[in-house]
């Protein structure tokens, strides 16, 4: 339950904040989320990775009808279909590492969130 809530909140916050803040806001965002929601290190990585990757994928399909996919595919010499996933992977990795470290660096004893 907690994990799903964090996951959803992360997606919403990523999309909302990225509209006016630089793309790397996902780094402090996932760190803070993982830190305060007391995720386990594994879910700190996975939830952050998954949330940001999905947020990015959704955002990409929202803004582009395919032309940029094709262009980036040519640029990086990969199938155009995969380009949003490459982006999602990069965003996810950044988020994952910050989420992981947030979870690891959070104080162990004190319980910040009920549950």
């Amino acid at each position: 339950m907690k994990n799903s809530l964090v996951y959803l909140l992360l997606i919403v916050c990523t999309i909302a904040l990225s509209l006016f803040l630089p793309w790397w806001i996902i780094a402090p965002l996932t760190f803070v989320f993982a830190y305060f929601s007391k995720l386990t290190p594994a879910s700190g990585f996975l939830i952050s990775f998954g949330a940001i990757a999905l947020a990015w994928l959704l955002s990409i399909y929202f803004v582009d009808t395919g032309a940029v996919n094709i262009l980036l595919g040519k640029l990086f010499k990969v199938n155009a279909f995969f380009t949003p996933f490459i982006a999602a992977l990069l965003g996810g990795l950044v988020a994952g590492f910050f989420g992981w470290s947030g979870a690891l660096l959070a104080p162990k004893k004190k319980n910040w969130v009920n549950g």
């Binding site: 793309w23 803004v63 980036l72 982006a87």
Partner: peptide, 16 residues
């Protein structure tokens, strides 16, 4: 790559 590939200020914003 981060600047180029993020959906919010990267290449995808140049979609028309």
């Amino acid at each position: 790559l981060g600047k180029l590939l993020n959906p919010y200020s990267g290449a995808w914003q140049n979609a028309e």
